[in-house]
């Protein structure tokens, strides 16, 4: 598979209020750092407001995956409103349900049990990265 130099943009909700937000951030970080380090880039969602034209062009410049921790869908809606329509929108509660994973009960200081959940979610995000790259 030749995916060239194309990079997929990952935009995570920050979700400070809820454990699913922490899953979201850590799973995206794992994809960026370990699973797809040369095929993914990210941007902080609030930069669509605080940044300039370059930041707002992010979704136009990259096929983009948004990952949200709750049904308010801040990442998906914020990206579409301020930058461009994401290629895929993922929702943590749906991923956890599909994979039969329990929602972590705390929003920080994740241990081995919560890290295992993060790893599974990261695999699913990485698989979607591959799908997008294969689409060309």
């Amino acid at each position: 598979m030749d995916t060239g130099n194309k990079k997929v943009g990952l935009i995570s909700c920050s979700g400070e209020e809820i454990p699913e937000g922490t899953v979201c951030r850590l799973a995206c970080r794992r994809v960026l750092d370990e699973l797809k380090p040369h095929k993914t880039v990210t941007i902080c969602l609030p930069l669509f407001i605080a940044g300039g034209e370059e930041e707002r062009a992010f979704a136009a410049s990259h096929p983009t995956i948004t990952v949200d921790g709750c049904r308010k869908l801040c990442a998906a809606r914020g990206t579409e409103m301020l930058s461009g329509k994401p290629s895929r929108s993922l929702l943590i509660p749906e991923i956890l349900r599909r994979r039969g994973l329990a929602t972590p009960s705390k929003r920080r200081d994740f241990g081995p049990k919560e890290d295992a959940v993060v790893r599974e979610v990261a695999k699913e995000i990485a698989a979607v990265v591959d799908e997008i790259l294969e689409e060309g």
Partner: peptide, 12 residues
């Protein structure tokens, strides 16, 4: 009270 910053991005 802690709230998620991106909620402001989508004007919640």
């Amino acid at each position: 009270s802690l709230t998620c910053l991106p909620l402001l991005v989508v004007n919640d």
